[in-house]
Write a protein that binds this DNA or RNA. Structure first.
Lengths: 333, 333
DNA sequence: TCTTATTGCGCAATCGATTGTTTAATAGTA
DNA sequence: TACTATTAAACAATCGATTGCGCAATAAGA
């Protein structure tokens, strides 16, 4: 059913039908009677306008592109949830792209989304390249979780530096000086800032960095597993491991279990990212909790400010340390 | 940049430009030289055709609507991942809708997606109503995870009945006769079949059903928590709990922990849905593992068969029992 | 030289909805 | 009655790409 067919049946022009159905009857002085006839027939046929045609004409799609590295990572899944709900409230729909943390797929996704004329973009970028993020015809874009320091693209992220600094300080306060940090994707701002916070805390507390390690290379369970395995085979096993996201932490736990060791007796563990099941693990896993919901909502709000041509500010939201049994104090008393 | 602007610069018609850019140069005998000029200019301007206009003209959007009850549930998040990847391979994009397991939102989502002229639908329905799923203008649709028995809409799902039957039989074989089953959304086919499997296993093993309980009403952590809490306050606490999804299981564990009880000493627990961290829980959680990846891939394949007007068949894929320490044998020897 | 094929490309309609500008009809005023 | 306002609704262009049909121009054949 199209507006034209309605018009034919009603024996009037598409113009009139369109104006009634878009609520512009008053503005264009359509008579009460005519308007009612249009509405009745539209309802009878359950008419819904073709959005494609509408989008073309109005040069607006009410669609936002959401680019995410890994929707199966609960951190991003929760973020996507919050974002979808927030956007729906504002009558926008979400075109979802999962980049698998591959820059090529990210570039391709940007191209596809631009071709589809999305009104805006929410991107958690891989972080290796950014040229494609600057060639987006100036459509509103907000980065999530990760950003580019030297670029002016607005972003909403956790204060990864602070979170990591707190986490590391906590480990040190518990007597840990031989700490291994298993990182995620090296180029991401999230990772870089977590590493910075880690190193700054070590420095501030005058920890001998010859005894600390940074290893790993992506945000996967496998990376946590393999990295931990190699750590456990070293001559001097660290007393604590700081896993830079929830999936890495899971991998680390598996490796430690398989090696027949115990957390926290043999080694302590702390994860960046909190998950609902962390308190149920054996042992309950200490973590840095990111304000996921706030990030999603702030990102959507910021995007809408851009859509309304307002000035926006980026923000780094504070995470919280949740100490649990997985970190043991080894302070000699 | 539009095809028209290109045509103007090249001093030729949009027709020619379009034909070259859609690779129809041969078919319409565009000269080698002309074709090259078009391609060169298009590349120079990084021209990408406006998909909205294209979609309108071709009556095809290369977009699939994905309707899911809860993207933050790792089961659906993983499914979404698989589906997104499979669709991308086939040059389709995903419009994502999260219904929060609310029928109203599901109905609204269908309407929105139809208005946007998606080429097909992948739906994990709430399950309470289906009328809106039959008024979809015959666009190809495949149900995932949940379906409607008396309807002919094709579906791909786990064999929930078999999984639940196996799980229950396993519990019984371990000596459990006072079993509580905490269910999810009552109307979903997944839930109904899991309940059926549960009851059939009880019957086949001649378990006194006066001692078994079925309670709960949705797939949330809270439901698991509250249901378990009420169970633990009963005069006769069950010896085993069967949680009908991963989130319910988490809630149950929390409640048991809070009550100061222990799994499996005081009570055994088994979950429908496997998650990577289950083996790391305290104690490692027994589960029924659903073939998530297979479901996603099969759903996309089936959808494409529909798009190609082929006949399709629904399927129920077999899950696997993974016994772990959370279930204790209480067989008297 | 004249007719017929073939080559190369453009005209104009189309997809469905929106909207600035007109037009026709009716009402109101002098 | 003649003329201006006002009311009600239609015309036609537009968004950008695609495509059936047609028309020159050139080449080939008689």
């Amino acid at each position: 059913m199209t507006i034209k067919e309605l018009a034919n049946q009603l024996n009037m022009s598409t113009t009139t039908v369109s104006r009634v159905l878009t609520g512009q009857e008053k503005k264009y002085r359509i008579s009460e009677k005519t308007a009612q006839r249009v509405k009745d027939l539209a309802k009878a046929h359950q008419f819904a306008p073709n959005q494609i045609a509408r989008n073309l004409r109005l040069q607006k799609t009410n669609t936002i592109g959401l680019i995410i590295p890994d929707i199966s990572n609960p951190f991003f899944a929760n973020l996507a949830r919050t974002i979808e709900v927030a956007l729906r409230k504002r009558d926008k729909m979400v075109l979802l792209c999962d980049t698998k943390d591959e820059t090529t797929i990210e570039e391709e996704s940007i191209t596809l989304l631009l071709g589809r004329k999305v009104d805006g973009l929410l991107v958690a970028p891989v972080g290796e390249k950014w040229a494609h993020l600057e060639k987006t015809n100036n459509i509103p874009m907000v980065l999530i979780d990760r950003y580019f320091e030297h670029k002016e693209i607005p972003y909403i992220t956790t204060d990864n530096y602070a979170g990591s600094y707190d986490a590391t300080s906590f480990l040190i306060s518990q007597g840990h000086h031989r700490i291994a940090c298993i990182q995620g994707l090296v180029h991401t701002s999230a990772n870089k800032n977590r590493i910075k916070g880690f190193q700054k805390a070590l420095a501030d507390h005058k920890v001998d960095t010859a005894q600390t390690f940074i290893l790993g290379n992506d945000y996967s369970v496998e990376n946590g597993y393999e990295s931990a395995k190699s750590l456990l085979q070293a001559a001097e096993v660290p007393t604590a491991i700081f896993a830079l996201n929830n999936q890495i932490a899971i991998g680390v736990m598996k490796a430690i279990n398989e090696a027949g060791l115990h957390i926290p007796e043999n080694i302590s563990l702390l994860s960046f990212d909190e998950q609902p099941y962390f308190e149920l693990l054996s042992p309950p896993l200490s973590s840095i909790k990111q304000p996921m919901e706030e990030i999603g909502i702030a990102a959507v709000e910021t995007l809408f400010e851009l859509l309304e041509n307002k000035k926006v500010t980026s923000s780094r939201l504070k995470p919280t340390l949740i100490p649990r049994a997985s970190v043991k104090s080894i302070v000699k008393s």
